[in-house]
Amino acid sequence: MKLTAIGIISLLVIALVACQSEDQLEFNRYYTSGKVLYQSKCQNCHGDNGEGLSALIPPLTDAGYLKTNKKQLACIVKYGLNAPITINKKAYYNKMPLTDMAPVEIAEVLTYVNNSFGNKMGVITTNMVEEDLKGCK
């Protein structure tokens, strides 16, 4: 009797894990690696919570900007930024240094940023990043 109960419970657990869709698993993979990359490459300037630094470094919380410029984000992460940028209606003039990360790393870090600090934009895959990098100016 006891064995049957254990068997049923294990089956339920397996079913639950299997229910986590392929997409969700992919998202989790990107997001988790992205978090580690963010901490080592981005956090010093952009802050633990993507809050930026006064008027020197922009926050990463402008959902509108992220949406409108979704296709440019990979280029900014890879090559840095040399032009003024307007975030949350405030202008920022300082340069962002290049990170020169690989496409897979860019995809991971963008998945993290685009789904943290109040942002919710879903997964950014390596394929999407590779495509976007072709359009860098």
């Binding site: 956090q43 010093n44 300037c45 630094l53 006064s54 020197l56 470094i57 340069k95 240094p97």
Partner: peptide, 15 residues
């Protein structure tokens, strides 16, 4: 001022 590594976090804390 153009320090890309530890200065921003230092001055965030110094604030």
């Amino acid at each position: 001022t153009s320090c890309p590594s530890i200065c921003p976090v230092m001055h965030r804390n110094m604030l």
